[in-house]
Design a binder for these strands. Structure first.
Lengths: 195, 195
DNA sequence: CAACAAATACACCGATCTGTATACTTAATA
DNA sequence: TATTAAGTATACAGATCGGTGTATTTGTTG
């Protein structure tokens, strides 16, 4: 999940630092001055690349979108070619994610919490990310060949969301394993129903 | 969910206003001055009742804890005495909750997002609330009489959490109904498994 | 070498933040 | 009626916030 490249462009460095600080401490709690300092960059340079803090937030969320999507796709591809195993690998991947030491819940959820009313563009990036996630899961359900892939995908998506916030709020629970256990039941039910 | 009492004590008025503003706009984004003004109270009075903003936040979350617990218990009791119906009424209640116009996701999740590192006491209130919620659901599972009530309760808890954040991020989805559909399957599976 | 873009250094702006100091007023109570 | 607690009014402190103005330096490219 984490990448520590030796030589990033100033822009990438700023986004990288922003992601770390926003995820760990939240958005309002993270000031522009700190981001610039931690990036080894002047505040003036920051504003040369991003017109405002909100723009920086949006760019950071877009970066996280790509990063998380790649993370899940990579891990699921490692699970092999069996469609059922690929679908359930979602929850194994989630388990890896939760165990990383820079996991602080879903930053998209956190961003929506902090900008529920104020900032349309931030909220839009978050809901769009979630929509794409559901599309991805729906694709895996279609591979499995259940009768109503949309319904199963919606159910598994909610399970995944629940596992994320449970891992965030109640780390002692094995949220990913519980969600996977439930997912197995829902998947088998969806498969038998079409006979 | 909302209560508009005519004459509240200053303390209750402050907590009531805080809950509204914190839920709608977030914690860092809501200033002490605004809370005092909207409560019709001086900032000096606010600090006479609560030693700091963090103390006010903790008190507000405790109030929300009681309010939400009562909300769910009341609605579930209205569902009658059939244990299965009572258990599934969790998700009907969630559906009512999501449709209220002062629903902005779970304020406990939002608080944890904003104070993940900084404030232990705030985080503790939130995780404790979630723990009690799981206990409550476990009690309903025991009433139903499944073999492993803890397992089913953990699964349904994750479903509920997932429905909450899905309703927050993707309001167009009928998150409560989807979660209930999944809950029915998990419940029936838990019941047949013990034969 | 000349020209230009990118980044730096650094002071500064107005606004807002949490929290406090001080003096005055109201209302209930003993 | 005297006392006391609760609240008001208002100004202020010290820090931080997002964002800008300006001049200087660096590095690359023609």
């Amino acid at each position: 999940m984490s990448q520590n490249a030796p030589s990033l462009s100033k822009r990438d460095q700023l986004i990288h630092t922003s992601l770390e600080l926003f995820s760990r401490h939240g958005f309002h709690a993270t000031g522009i001055d700190l981001i610039a300092r931690e990036s080894g960059v002047t505040k003036r340079t920051l504003y040369a690349h991003f017109g405002s803090k909100d723009e920086l937030i949006v760019a950071t969320l877009h970066h996280l979108d790509e990063q998380l999507s790649r993370y899940f796709e990579t891990h699921i591809n490692k699970a092999g070619s069996n469609p059922k195993q690929r679908l359930l690998a979602i929850f194994d991947t989630a388990g890896y994610w939760f165990s990383e030491n820079n996991f602080f819940g879903c930053t998209f959820i956190n961003a929506t919490a902090e900008y529920a009313q104020e900032n349309e563009s931030i909220r839009k990036v978050c809901s769009e990310y979630k929509r794409m996630g559901r599309e991805f899961i729906k694709g895996l359900c279609e591979e499995v060949g259940v009768r109503k892939p949309q319904e199963l995908a919606d159910e598994l998506s909610i399970l995944l969301e629940g596992a994320i916030v449970t891992a965030q709020l109640s780390p002692q629970l094995e949220a990913a394993n519980i969600a996977k256990r439930a997912a197995v039941i829902l998947l088998e039910q969806a498969l038998t129903k079409q006979c």
